Amino acid sequence: MVPADPPRPPGSGRSSPEAAGTRRLAGDAAGVAEAARLLCAGGIVAFPTETVYGLGARAADGRAVARVFEAKGRPAFNPLIVHVASAAEAEALAEAGPEARALMAAFWPGPLALVLPVRPGAAVAPLVLAGLPTVALRMPDHPLARALLEAAGPLAAPSANPSGRVSPTEAGHVLAGLGGRIDAVLDGGPCPVGVESTIVMPDAEGGARLLRAGGLPAEAIEAALGAALRVETDPARVVAPGQTASHYAPRGRLRLEAMEAGPGEVLVGFGPVRGEMSLSPSGDLREAAANLFAVLHRLDAAGVERIAVAPVPETGLGRAINDRLRRAAAPRG
């Protein structure tokens, strides 16, 4: 619990105690500096964009990203949008073709997210990607968001609300929904756009697909590209936030709730169940969530055909971990 602060004048940079310990940081240089400090220490902080408030964690910090899913009560690990301070920062994380660069030049900063192939070795935690070979990127058009990104680096950030609830457009909305679950909210006042960003995926063969309608009209994007957007209609194909849940599965077959490896299996442990690798030797659900996709990728890279996974508690982040594991273990056509 943060002790009570005395009343603060506007713009003082002081935080006010609200919602069981979640700090409300003033929208000034001191507030941005404190938000960046919290993020760099592994914290999670809500911040304003022109669309809605996002709940940010440093994109390279898997454990912090796991805290974001935990705080939101997000039932499955869906891909997250990574917010960047510049197009150059985006291209350090992803491979951008001519269409992507044209859209960045036309609409960044702004309410447009682009889904692009992630660069090998990019500083993005696997949990952000949800096992996909792509990353969603956007440069927000809000001075506080831009200042925070300059100070803390790329931030993975879904909307700062409990999963399934209305997206927040004011700091008070964030505190009402997530107070006590997150470290702080940087108060930038009301969001001017008020709906989530439009998400587009440029195609390798030219053109682009509309994955989610949002704050940037599709007509403006089509005018910039000189071509109509194709609309993604396959519910089994999920490459961006806001689509039906469907997630990466390894090539190997999974057996869940395993206490030991069977013939020909590699055991992935958790807590006291030891295996050749482990989601978390200490039984830490945040660590397990952060490690989940990386472990599955390692199993794929090793060509493992049969995988046994130790039981994970069906509580907190364990629900999301088990949701992901059950989908990965489901029968395939």
Rank of each mutant, 00 (worst) to 15 (best):
M1A: 14
V2T: 13
D5P: 02
D5R: 15
R8L: 12
G11Y: 13
G13W: 03
S15P: 09
A19T: 00
A19K: 09
L25C: 08
G27I: 05
A29F: 07
A36W: 12
R37V: 00
L38R: 15
A41F: 06
I44S: 02
T51I: 09
Y53G: 00
A60K: 09
F69V: 14
G73P: 07
P75H: 15
P79N: 15
I81S: 02
H83Y: 09
A88T: 13
E89R: 11
E99S: 15
W108G: 00
L112E: 03
L112M: 10
L129Q: 09
G131R: 09
L132Y: 01
T134G: 01
L137Q: 00
P143T: 06
A151S: 14
A152W: 00
P154Q: 13
P158S: 09
L175Y: 13
G180A: 08
A184R: 02
V185N: 05
D187C: 07
D187N: 06
D187Y: 05
P190V: 05
V195N: 06
V195C: 14
P202K: 08
P202M: 10
G207I: 02
R209Q: 12
R209W: 10
L210Q: 09
L211C: 14
R212D: 13
G214H: 03
P217D: 02
E222Y: 03
A224D: 10
A228Y: 05
R230E: 13
A236W: 04
R237P: 00
T244P: 00
T244H: 06
R251C: 02
G252H: 12
L254K: 07
R255N: 11
R255D: 04
A258N: 04
A258S: 13
P263D: 10
G275T: 06
M277S: 06
L279Q: 04
R286S: 11
N291H: 15
N291K: 09
F293E: 02
V295Q: 04
A301Y: 03
R306H: 12
E314N: 13
T315K: 11
N322E: 07
R324K: 13
G333H: 02
